[in-house]
Design a protein around this nucleic acid. Sequence first.
DNA 1: AAATTATGCCGTATATTTGCGTCATATCTA
DNA 2: TAGATATGACGCAAATATACGGCATAATTT
Lengths: 108, 108
Amino acid sequence: MAKTELFDESLQLAATYFKALSHPARLAIINYLIETGTCITGDITEELPLSRTTVGQHLQELKACNLVQGTVDGVKVNYCINAIGLEEIIQVLRNMATQLEKAKSCKC
Amino acid sequence: MAKTELFDESLQLAATYFKALSHPARLAIINYLIETGTCITGDITEELPLSRTTVGQHLQELKACNLVQGTVDGVKVNYCINAIGLEEIIQVLRNMATQLEKAKSCKC
DNA sequence: AAATTATGCCGTATATTTGCGTCATATCTA
DNA sequence: TAGATATGACGCAAATATACGGCATAATTT
């Protein structure tokens, strides 16, 4: 199985970003980080109906595609939005929106 | 398990659309439909490295969130982009891009 | 030094996704 | 009517995603 690598690379990249946004918990984390600027895992966990471990896992996924970044501060880790992935995903979102705009008229 | 329903409804809706876009095969199908305007399952299957059954399943998922629509034409089914879901998903994509724009500066 | 705190890593259980073959059905064609 | 064709529904296996508790670790705090 796992046939995703048989597709065009640009499609794979876009799919990866969309997957990162495909869970409400991760969207909530992103929104929280945008509003607060920076915060630690514990802060986010208190905002969500999930355990600390699960929140940590979602953060790792967001880190994996450079959407989120963490800097160690003693015992804590300060998380914030990562500018690298940010630019890329905004591009992907805008491109997709533009692409979909083309299909305004249904042909069947 | 399955805690997605504990989150804000708008986040759930957005996550649903992003999930629909989170597989390269579905992105390829959408692009193909935009380019050709309309086509049958068989046509799409020949473009993708997947079996007919699997392509049919991806089409069902796209239909489930009103991104794609199918009209029966004898033995065949003509698929095309569905204007209903199209408007909604474009909104979601644009909103997300705008939301992410706010986070231009990293705070850690 | 001992207790507290915040986190990462590991293992585990369940749920969902992905991918396919087979069968049934419905429509066209010869 | 018989055969070809296109599709949906069903079931199944493998891979991923989701969610969590427990343990280890490292830095503060007392």
